[in-house]
Design a binder for these strands. Sequence first.
DNA 1: TTTATATATTGACATTCATCGATATGTTTG
DNA 2: CAAACATATCGATGAATGTCAATATATAAA
Lengths: 120, 120
Amino acid sequence: MTEHEKIVLFAKALQDENRLQIIEMLQSGEKCACKLLEHLQIEQSTLSHHMKILCQSGLIAWKKVGKWMHYSIHPEEAKKLLHLLQSLTNVKDSSLNQLETTISNSSCQCDHPAHKGTAI
Amino acid sequence: MTEHEKIVLFAKALQDENRLQIIEMLQSGEKCACKLLEHLQIEQSTLSHHMKILCQSGLIAWKKVGKWMHYSIHPEEAKKLLHLLQSLTNVKDSSLNQLETTISNSSCQCDHPAHKGTAI
DNA sequence: TTTATATATTGACATTCATCGATATGTTTG
DNA sequence: CAAACATATCGATGAATGTCAATATATAAA
């Protein structure tokens, strides 16, 4: 899987409001599907679908315990995915800490003469 | 706009392979649409559509220069969006730097007696 | 002012996605 | 083993998305 494919899977996992709620619920630690379902206005089959997408993105880890399925945020994978997004968007770790401005090349590289030396 | 809505817009912006390529092209600095188009296998109207989605997410800044449209990564917004994702996924800035394991509460909070004391 | 160029908008179409109900699978308990 | 429970899979459906061609808008050039 290429880096772009990983990012696409991650992005697709995050594009649904219900899945964001699920991730938020997992912030406080591992939960089973039935517990998650209590707080969502969706049917069980839909939750199962969402968990599949979240797990396939790598962000969420799962573990079968008896007949229950336990889900949790996968910290290492979450970090890897965020690193991919940092690289993609040119955001540096240090600037993330300090909310500094990332320095980027601001000259237009368009061939058109009219574009030379422009900056946003 | 809620934080979740911001994340959803950001995630939708990142879920397309062509848009990831566009972001990557902007890593080296501001570019105009015609320049971006040269390196993509899509029609002009499709690029315009993609740029709209990228700009609406906040990640990409735009500036009109004559009849050209210049695009660039918006560093401050990129940082804000990454921060939102960090908070969502419980990833700490320091752990992002050092790739340490984020400590999370690993006890299941399901009501079921059988779940007490389990851990992944 | 007419023409050329860069970008945006619109409408159509195929594909993907979220959702549900029904059903299947797997596990525990009686 | 049978019943109950938790979760997964399947099929259908409506909504959202990516794409293009055609057209509109805006700016620059002749």
